[in-house]
Design a protein around this nucleic acid. Structure first.
Lengths: 134, 134
DNA sequence: TATCTGTTATATAAGTAGTATAACAGATAT
DNA sequence: ATATCTGTTATACTACTTATATAACAGATA
């Protein structure tokens, strides 16, 4: 039941954000299914060699965003009901995050088609490898 | 020759990043053309009510990324040769930035088509309003 | 000569990221 | 019963980032 987390400690991206993203990727790839147990804050922290509170920070955000349930004594599981589906608010936030990427892309002569091609490759990366370890 | 910068001082996004993005958006919309002069660090700082060094930090990054040229005495201009075009390295970096957005989208049931539709709207936002103030 | 340009150097305050330790209360297995 | 597990809370500390404030410098220019 070991974890598939690889962190880049040199990155400017905070560790708890990287951890959060890796778990979200695991859910996207369906390596993590609704109801699946996640490691305790202590064991995961020990496994990847970071502090308990850093793991807890990632878990708290994942809980906030509806990815997981945290039970004070039983531990942490992927949300049994699945992740809250995208609504209009989510779409607007996503658009706000895409905005600077697309402005930059336009300046560098990247077309909408090329941009969507990159997106497509990523969608395939997550969807094709359902349950695999890549 | 006034500037079209609107900052959100409440945002967790650093001011110098927001400033950077707004200038990049200006270039994407072709409101800022190659060779166009940008305000001096002091006047822009005064205009939008922030510190000279915060503007300078944004300018330094824009210079680093090839958007602008900085001449020690003459001032700052949008790069006359245009912005460096996207190469393979740029595509990989862009993909790395899209990756967490797409993983999250998949978890929330957003399809590739819906994702590309959002992207398309943003491309249109920047391309249709060429030279306009929106 | 005064004024503009970017640049450099210090100093300070506030916030974030990460770690270290310790303790608590509830559940659970031995 | 006791030891061990769970998340949670509290405190303290270091390092770094963000943003500001002031001051000064050297080159260009009106």
């Amino acid at each position: 039941m070991n974890v598939f987390i690889n962190l880049n400690l040199e990155s400017s991206e905070p560790i708890y954000i990287q951890l959060q993203q890796q778990i979200i990727e695991g859910i996207a790839k369906k390596q993590l299914q609704p109801g699946d147990a996640l490691p305790s804050v202590r064991s995961l922290a020990a496994d990847i060699g970071i502090n308990l509170h850093t793991v807890n920070k990632a878990y708290q955000q994942l809980k906030q965003d509806g990815f997981i349930l945290i039970h004070r004594q039983k531990g942490v599981v992927v949300h049994p009901d699945g992740v809250p589906q995208a609504d209009e608010e989510y779409r607007q936030e996503l658009k706000a995050k895409l905005r600077p990427l697309i402005a930059d892309s336009i300046c560098r002569g990247l077309s909408e088609v090329e941009f969507s091609q990159l997106s497509k490759e990523l969608f395939q990366l997550f969807n094709e490898e359902e349950g695999e370890k890549n």
